[in-house]
Amino acid sequence: MGTSVTISAARDGDAEQILKLQYLCYQSEAALYGDYGIEPLTQSLDDLRAELARGCVLVARLGEEVVGSVRGSVDEDGTATIAKLIVHPRMQRHGLGRRLLTAIEEKLAEERSARRYRLFTGHRSEGNLRLYRRLGYSQVSTERVSPRLSLVLLEKEAVREAVPRDLAASA
């Protein structure tokens, strides 16, 4: 009997597994841009624990192993910033990144009233760009941060569920 991947809120005890997975997942990005000093590779365990305490962090689990994660926060204008979408290399290309991104969007809309979503990725990260575009994100800007790296900012509006007519009429 196989174990299926579940998505849930991260727990305090997940910090070390998330950090190790983040380090593993960002190796390919660092190699792509020739920069091993990127923040996901230098983040401390204490910084990650602080993020877990203040933000919205989801993990994908295969049994007890964390095989994916994503983080998000919402500002006072209702703009959700989604960051550090990671999936273990052996679990990639099976829809888990899409599931995590959809789950964080739903959670941020329901619990924190997100009205739009914003994320960024490197200009050479074609797999990331394809995924985000497939899920409705559009490029809004590109910012050159170094001779080797430009960050592509993408956004999409949150989908609002239609209000049933009988509820709309009584409002």
Rank of each mutant, 00 (worst) to 15 (best):
L119F: 02
V67A: 07
L58Y: 03
S44M: 11
A50W: 00
E126R: 07
G97K: 05
R98D: 06
R71M: 10
L108S: 11
L119E: 03
G34R: 13
D75E: 09
E111A: 09
L58N: 02
L48K: 01
A158E: 15
I38W: 01
P147W: 08
S141G: 08
E111S: 10
L41P: 03
S69N: 04
G68D: 01
R118A: 14
A50V: 00
V159I: 13
Y137E: 11
T121H: 04
D75A: 07
G136I: 06
Y137H: 07
D77A: 14
S44Q: 10
L154R: 02
R134G: 12
P147I: 10
K107Q: 14
A10D: 08
Q92L: 00
E51H: 05
Q17L: 04
T142E: 15
A109H: 14
Y137N: 08
E157V: 15
G13V: 12
M91S: 07
L151V: 12
V67P: 05
E29I: 00
S69V: 01
L167K: 12
I18D: 04
L154H: 02
V70W: 01
P89N: 14
T6F: 02
R118T: 13
Y23A: 08
I82L: 08
L19E: 05
L151P: 09
A114C: 06
R165H: 08
L101Q: 06
A9H: 11
I38E: 01
S125R: 01
H94S: 00
L151R: 15
G2E: 09
E155K: 01
E65Q: 07
S146Y: 05
Q139N: 10
A50S: 06
R118K: 15
Q17M: 05
A162C: 07
G95P: 03
E76C: 11
E64I: 02
G78S: 04
V140S: 05
R90M: 02
E110A: 14
L62G: 06
V87M: 15
A31K: 12
S73H: 07
A30G: 10
G72Q: 03
I82P: 04
G136Q: 05
H94I: 09
L19Q: 13
P164D: 03
K20M: 08
L52S: 06
R112F: 12
